[in-house]
Design a protein around this nucleic acid. Structure first.
Lengths: 212, 212
DNA sequence: GTCTATAGGATGATAGAC
DNA sequence: GTCTATCATCCTATAGAC
């Protein structure tokens, strides 16, 4: 029992250190010796906890998405069922951004290195991403059906735009300048209602429509 | 003359190959042997054209931003001076996205690996980024002064959000599904006027305001 | 301009002592 | 569970022939 807890603790400690290194230096630049040194153990000892460098990185990818997914699911679930979808989007965006920046070693490692990993690693992680995407597709789809969002909308494109814009904040957001709550409400206001004061004389045309 | 042209050609060919590899595999994962093989020469020969791996990557970073910067500057310059800023933003977004996806090896290498490079390399490239940021700050600032954009706006934050959202499209946009021109007009419509049909009963509150 | 050859060091992974 | 020691391989960069 104590041994199991200890093993789990060491494993998680190694993942924490590795996530920090991966996000700052990239996947290939980080050596197992580096991860071990950061964790306070020796390189050979890593092989007691993990089978390979790939197993380490896959677990980091999964944790990064799952922490955000769980936080957003909790936030949406806490709303009354009849709440307007616009409110759901606002709440989901805040939960996403809070979790994103709280677990930033995991989430930024995920976003920065995913595209550079071997196909086998990308494929092992992909279902976790797909599951989170689905949550957003459902939320945005409800908005379209309820008439709150433009009905000429391409949901996968709006979802990619929204998630991409939020995730990119890992590269520029500075917690010293403003709270995450404020960041979230500002971004939600722009995404839902726009940065301009009013529509131009000519109609802006259908946004994110289904076809070119 | 022919020799000079040849040298420039080889140099650019090597950069093209290296940019493609860096964007797909990351900085540390790409070896000079790999760049040389992709370019059709041998590793030792690279040192006739470049002093080091760092010199190669710095040039790739600079080219990526400068191509986009030049395209956006050209597009804005072609507008009549009295054109509304909203139109300028639309034109600039389209030019940014067109150049971004046309030179995608350079631009995605830039965005994916910048944060993982040694500080010395980041610092060498930073002025090029700052100069492009300035162009957007001026454009958005004109929008606020002309009354077209919310005057409670924090310009650096709106700029980071906008550029981050567009650049993230490198990770999800598929040219087979829709043209870049359409992508650009859809994103501009959302950013300027929002994805929702109308403001909620309660005012959405100041967006991207200056302070927390 | 491009080549071959190589110096000097770091890497992922394994074997086996404790 | 953690250690040391090691293998085979790969890396950046340089030297010097052609």
């Amino acid at each position: 029992m104590a041994a199991a807890a200890k093993e789990g603790e060491t494993r998680r400690h190694v993942l924490d250190c590795a996530a920090r290194l991966f996000s700052r230096e990239g996947y290939a630049a980080v050596s197992l010796r580096g991860i071990a040194a950061e964790s306070g153990i020796k390189a050979g000892s890593l092989y007691y906890h993990f089978e390979s460098k790939e197993e380490i990185v896959i677990e980091i990818l999964n944790v990064g998405v799952q922490l955000v997914h769980a936080a957003v699911e909790r936030a949406i679930g806490a709303l009354p069922p009849q709440a307007p979808v616009a409110q759901g989007i606002g709440v989901a965006m805040e939960a996403h951004l809070q979790a994103l920046h709280k677990a930033s070693d995991y989430t930024s490692a995920n976003i920065r290195i995913f595209g550079q990993l071997p196909q086998s690693v990308q494929n092992a992680h992909r279902p976790v991403r797909r599951s989170y995407d689905l949550l957003w597709s459902e939320l945005l789809g409800r908005g379209v059906r309820s008439g709150e969002l433009r009905d000429d909308i391409n949901i996968p494109r709006l979802r990619a735009f929204l998630l991409g814009a939020m995730n990119a904040s890992l590269e520029w957001y500075n917690p010293k300048s403003v709270s995450v709550a404020r960041l979230a409400s500002d971004l939600a206001a722009v995404v839902l209602y726009g940065a301009a004061y009013a529509a131009p004389l000519a109609a802006p045309g259908p946004a994110l429509a289904r076809k070119a």
